[in-house]
Structures are given as structure tokens and as C-alpha cells.
Write a protein that binds this DNA or RNA. Structure first.
Lengths: 178, 178
DNA sequence: CAACGTTGTGTACGATCGTACACATGGGAT
DNA sequence: ATCCCATGTGTACGATCGTACACAACGTTG
């Protein structure tokens, strides 16, 4: 039977789920594909996550935390000496220019909340965290508007394959900041 | 055998697909569910649409055209006497307050382009049409920015269940318009 | 050290899916 | 009138899915 003692089994399943979504999309997410990717038997994924929604919630939360760390590590966003619009436009450019799989993965999980109410609190927390962080540089209304505009600009790039235009992003972001 | 002569078969299948996506989401879309909804045999859906992507392209295109008609019928958007930000914020409020299924359906198909390259040209056309329409009231850069901001605000409402705030929308839209 | 509950494993069932294919039918071109 | 091909129908196959369940192993608690 060769039972494996694996105290981090649950975490490894989440990591595997994120890899699966990154490579195949949510459409390719199943208990079986995750089990194969994590190298655990089928029963193990169904034991730790009764439904796929549970698994997606865990994956979205982990993606959100990873995103928050990346944001936090970018000091320029908090430095009052920098221009906020310039900083945001530059950061978005780096993010979109990097690993496309990661960007698509995060947006796909985030947007999945549209049809899956279980994901909405996590998605809301994600957006709220980013807005809170921006609130250190501006007021709350502007912070929310910036989050909306950032999302909209990213979606235009991702959905329509229009190349990212940092100058355009900087310009319109600046308009929103009073 | 009772073969039915049905010259609008293809169109009825698209209509059925839109109803299925509206009620069950893209996850519930299959040749079989659409065939049942359209009251046609399975072979008929696979004949008219070889892949589900083909069917989604047709559905997205039809949704886009319906959306364009709704926009066009709203005269205020073109009337230079009205305030554009106020008009857009009011229109978004009506749209979001109306049939939620329709809103979710349109966004779900639109966002599906993230992972399905076949949908991207249609999604791009959708966004471009709206931007072109807005260009009659403002410049091209502002029009694109407005589309992005509208998308971002709608997503915040749909994903996080924050109630729509028309005053907030009007305010930030106004900032983008030079 | 014994009982128990958590964690892990293997397998099976019924449902659903995309796909393929053989065949029927009838409109329109010739 | 005849032929051809787009259109429509029915069925079957293999793959995959969620779910359930019986059982094994191990850590913990008493």
C-alpha cells in the first residue's frame, strides 16, 4: 500500500492546481488532473478539497498572496517622491512583459468569481488589498478608481492582443489622480 | 425519420447557446446541452459548429451586436448637449440594475477570450466598436481609456458584489475626460 | 499500549462529454 | 427530370469526470 507520510500534502495540491490552471486553464482543472500533477492518488485531492470550488478558493487565495508580496516588494509604490502614475504604468509594463502564463493564471482565477460566488470574497479581498495599498499615496476614491482602470487596461491588452502602451497608461492614470 | 426542414436552424442553435451560457455559464456549454435547449438532435449542433469554440465565437458575436444596438438606441450618448460622464454613469447603472443574467452572460463570453484565442478578434471588435462610438464625443485616447474604466468599474461590481455607486462612477469618469 | 480519529489509498459506478460515421432527405443546379 | 451536395438524424465508442466507499496506516490521546 506504501502509504506516504506527507504533512504538506495539502499545500502541494494547491501548488499543483495553480500549475494546472496556468498551463491548461480552469477548463482543464479536475480532481484527476491535479492529482496527477501533484503526484498523489485521486482520493487524496477529494479528501483535502471536497469540491473544485474549494480548491479554486485556495488557489485564488494563494495567487492573491503571491501578488501582494510582489507589490509590496516594489518599494517605489510607497515612496512619496515618485510619480504614482509613472510608477504604476511601469509596474504594469513589467508585469505584462513577464511570464504571460502567470498573468493569465491570476486573471483567470480572479475573473472566475463572476460565475462562482464562493470566489467572490477572495476576489474582493484581492482588489481591496491593492486599493488599501494605493490609499497610502492618495485618497480612497482615487485608489478604487486606479484599481478599476488598471484592471481595464490589463484586460484590453490580454483580451484584444493590443500591445501594452506604457505612455498611454501613464497618461490616463495621471488623469484619474487629482 | 421525420427530417425537419429548418432554414434557420443555425441561428436557433446560437440563440440556444446564449440561453445556456446565461443560465449555466460557459461551464455548462456542450454540444448536448445546446442541442437539448434548441430542440435539435446532437448531430445537428456538431454539424453547424465543428467545435465549441466556433459556437462561442458565433454567440459572442451575436451578443456583441445586441449590445451595440442597445448602445446605439441610447441617443444621449451622441447628443453633444449632454454631459458624457453623467450619461455613461447613468447608462452603466441601468445596465447593471437590469437583468443580471444578461450582464453576466455578456461579460463571461467577453472574458473567455482570455484563454481562447479564437474569441479575441471578436472581443477586440466589441471594445473597438464601443471606443469608436465614444470617439464621436471625445478623442481616441480618451475613448479607449473610458472603455477600460467602464470595464474595470463593472468588474468591481460583478466580482466583489460591491453595490454600484453612480456618483462615484460619474466622478472618476469625469476625471478621465479632458 | 490500546483505542480512536485523521489522513492516505485503491477501485468502482453512473453520468456526461467530444467525436465519428453511416445513412436519410430534399433543394437547387444542370 | 436527374444528380449532387448541403443539411439533418441516429447511434455508438472511448475518454473523462465527480462521487462514493471500503480499507490501510499512522499520530495522538487517554
Amino acid at each position: 500500500m506504501a502509504r506516504r507520510y506527507d504533512p504538506e500534502r495539502r499545500q502541494r495540491i494547491i501548488d499543483a492546481a495553480i500549475r494546472v490552471v496556468g498551463e491548461e486553464g480552469i477548463a482543464g482543472l479536475s480532481h484527476r488532473t491535479v492529482a496527477a500533477e501533484a503526484d498523489v492518488p485521486l482520493g487524496s485531492t477529494t479528501y483535502h478539497f471536497k469540491t473544485l470550488d474549494d480548491l479554486m478558493v485556495a488557489a485564488l487565495r494563494q495567487a492573491s498572496e503571491g501578488f501582494a508580496k510582489v507589490i509590496a516588494s516594489r518599494g517605489g509604490l510607497e515612496d512619496p517622491e515618485t510619480d504614482l502614475a509613472t510608477e504604476l504604468a511601469a509596474w504594469m509594463g513589467e508585469w505584462l512583459a513577464g511570464d504571460r502564463t502567470g498573468v493569465e493564471l491570476e486573471y483567470e482565477l480572479y475573473l472566475a468569481a463572476l460565475r462562482r460566488p464562493a470566489l467572490r470574497p477572495v476576489a474582493a479581498e484581492w482588489a481591496q488589498d491593492l486599493a488599501d495599498r494605493l490609499s497610502r499615496r492618495t485618497d480612497a476614491v482615487t485608489a478604487r478608481a486606479l484599481v478599476a482602470l488598471l484592471d481595464g487596461i490589463c484586460l484590453q491588452v490580454l483580451l484584444t492582443e493590443v500591445p501594452y502602451d506604457e505612455g498611454y497608461a501613464r497618461e490616463v492614470l495621471r488623469r484619474v489622480i487629482p
